[in-house]
């Protein structure tokens, strides 16, 4: 079914759709639902009235207060994860029309401009479903622990300012630091697969998000102190070498983080680290 969505919603199409969209129309939201882990999934469709400015969230809110399917069957409200609704918290990520993205920034006018258009919502497939569209992304946070994604400061006492930094370097770090752990890069990655057994998280492919964090912290003057630990964590099974360079990550990243550059940069660091380790010893 995914083939039907193969067309790109580029900026032009979206703008044209927005201009064409008529207020006061209704669209169909087709939602893949699941009552809980291990339960079978099913599809339910809902007719939802939309206005200019409506997004997937406002549609889901409508369904929450009118949980009736297109067949007139009363059902339960759809469960989904959301937070800031302005694409900075990463919570409301889901697969919309076959492609992963945040649902808050998915404007109905841009994606379903005509009366009766269908929008398909599915939970992310790379994480275990908790219920309906809500998935458990704990593995992503675990990955941040795995690579020690923090600056090892001495403590919170007053010890003066941090290191000076050029504006160029700050801009570079800022771009990397915008990652909101939403998981788009992992959902789209052919090498990142669902793994519900936490025992195997440390040996399954870690994905672009955490690799990017390794670069971020290795670029910080104090953060560098853990550079070797971070690189070692990425050189084992499930580390950076498992990247297949499909480069989907960078294309679906809502923050435009240069993930593939981070992967290459960390690739270089691991290369250098491996040689240094071989010739110098640990």
């Amino acid at each position: 079914m995914s083939g039907a969505y193969a067309h790109e919603y580029n900026a032009e199409t979206r703008r044209a759709n927005r201009q064409r969209a008529k207020p006061g129309r209704s669209i169909i939201l087709k939602i893949k639902r699941c009552d809980g882990p291990g339960k079978p999934s099913r599809w339910e469709s809902f007719k939802v009235p939309v206005e200019p400015g409506s997004n997937v969230i406002s549609c889901l809110k409508y369904i929450a207060s009118h949980p009736v399917t297109t067949d007139g069957k009363r059902t339960t409200p759809v469960v989904w994860d959301s937070g800031c609704l302005e694409e900075v918290c990463g919570a409301c990520t889901m697969v919309i029309n076959g492609r992963v993205r945040q649902s808050c920034s998915c404007l109905i006018d841009e994606y379903a401009p005509d009366e009766g258009d269908t929008l398909t919502l599915e939970p992310m497939s790379k994480f275990p479903v908790i219920r309906d569209l809500w998935v458990d992304r704990e593995r992503m946070f675990h990955a941040l622990r795995r690579v020690k994604a923090w600056v090892p400061i001495d403590g919170t006492y007053n010890l003066g300012p941090g290191p000076k930094e050029s504006p160029e370097h700050q801009q570079m770090r800022y771009a990397l630091s915008e990652c909101m752990t939403c998981g788009c890069c992992l959902e789209a990655c052919p090498q990142y697969l669902q793994e519900s057994d936490p025992e195997k998280w440390d040996t399954s492919f870690i994905g672009a998000a955490a690799i990017n964090q390794v670069r971020l912290f290795n670029e910080h003057k104090t953060g560098k102190r853990l550079k070797a630990d971070r690189l070692e964590a990425l050189m084992g099974p499930g580390g950076i070498t498992d990247c297949g360079n499909a480069q989907n990550c960078v294309k679906v990243c809502p923050k435009g983080i240069p993930l593939t550059e981070s992967i290459a940069a960390v690739g270089r660091s691991t290369t250098v680290h491996a040689f240094t380790r071989f010739f110098k010893g640990r």
């Binding site: 492609r99 789209a188 052919p190 989907n248």
Partner: peptide, 14 residues
């Protein structure tokens, strides 16, 4: 160890 997904992400690199 991978699962191709060109149907959903038909990018050239993919």
């Amino acid at each position: 160890t991978g699962r191709s997904n060109t149907a959903r992400y038909p990018f050239q690199d993919n």
